[in-house]
Design a protein around this nucleic acid. Structure first.
Lengths: 191, 191
DNA sequence: AAAATTAATGAATATTTATTCGGTAATAAA
DNA sequence: TTTATTACCGAATAAATATTCATTAATTTT
């Protein structure tokens, strides 16, 4: 009956927005630039999102979901905790290396004041399975007790900082460096 | 011969900028808002800084210097490495708790693309004494070998994430939580 | 193939925000 | 006390940026 929206175009827009956040920081995120990078007209952005704020919130949710999916890979759940943790850690590290713009996008916007409360709550709730995974390990006396959020920050914090240093060309993503980063996180959380 | 600049007013402006970054994120940093928060006229900002970019760069350098001064307190240098490290860690943690706007300001802007290369280089060079401290401990076989930047990211990363969680009211800054955070970092870096 | 529907366009417009500047007020030197 | 100098003000302006909308192009249905 009518022309339908081009899903590919939406992906182009989302990717463009992520890439630009990485390149220019999110203070520099301009709708005109997003349109140019996505190779669409400025007006087209408003076919998919009513406002810039909506674009950012929607994109944030999508990327955050993608990250959680990277973390909770059912394929890794049959293994021992250490092995599952190791796979999880590596998956996330590799994801960040492959799509630094996505990691930075989420990092930058999370505490930016630009996201709606609804979006923030969504971000926390979607992480529940990950927290459950940590809690179970605590109950089995495999890792330290305490608030799961603090445990988690000991894992994600160093990864993020390390990736940033790699992006800034201050360190190289060598096997040695990556292994050191993982090993330290493991020593941090283990009993 | 003439009226002189009011140092206090400059401090007001700097503090206002930091506070607003914390409140609204730095994408929302507007010169008019800074002026209002600092209780000065918009034009006054341009007495102290030629542009918004200059304001941000100057402020960044100032706050980063302040942070480094917190880290390298000569009073702590006579102690054992563990004790010095502990004091250092606590000083920094307390600083972040007391002035979260400063920590977040530096965090946010460091990878924002808004800082000049000169400012970024300054930030790295000023950290040298801290890196030296870490290297010495490595030579004395007290902590793990490897790139000092990776060691450092294992310490600052969790602190930053934890402070952010506290600010977001997701966890409380109890003795237990703070101690857990410290203990994990120590276990991460120790030999 | 024609009609109907809506995606897509991009120049024009609205809005927001950085910056300027003529005037005023405060302070230091003469 | 007078004069010189400059901080300070804030409304006006300039610049940057988000958003609209009349039009066109593409796609689906009949």
């Amino acid at each position: 009956m009518a022309r339908i929206k081009d899903q590919h175009k939406l992906e182009q827009i989302n990717k463009a927005a992520c890439v630009l956040v990485l390149k220019t920081g999110f203070a520099g995120l301009k709708m005109a630039d997003v349109a140019k990078e996505a190779d669409v007209a400025a007006g087209t952005l408003y076919v998919y999102y009513p406002t810039k704020e909506a674009l950012i919130n929607s994109l944030f949710k999508e990327v955050k979901s993608e990250i959680v999916q990277v973390l909770i890979n059912p394929k890794h759940h049959s293994l021992s905790f250490y092995n599952t943790f190791q796979k999880m850690w590596l998956s996330y590290f590799n994801f960040c290396m492959k799509f630094p713009e996505k990691m930075l996008f989420v990092e930058h916007f999370f505490h930016s004041g630009l996201l709606s409360k609804q979006t923030i709550d969504f971000a926390h709730s979607i992480m529940e399975p990950v927290f459950e995974f940590i809690k179970q390990a605590q109950n089995n006396e495999l890792i330290k007790k305490g608030d799961v959020l603090i445990i988690q920050s000991q894992i994600s914090g160093p990864i993020h900082e390390t990736i940033k240093l790699i992006l800034a060309n201050k360190i190289k993503p060598t096997k040695t460096n990556i292994h050191l980063c993982f090993e330290m996180s493991w020593q941090a959380i283990r009993k």
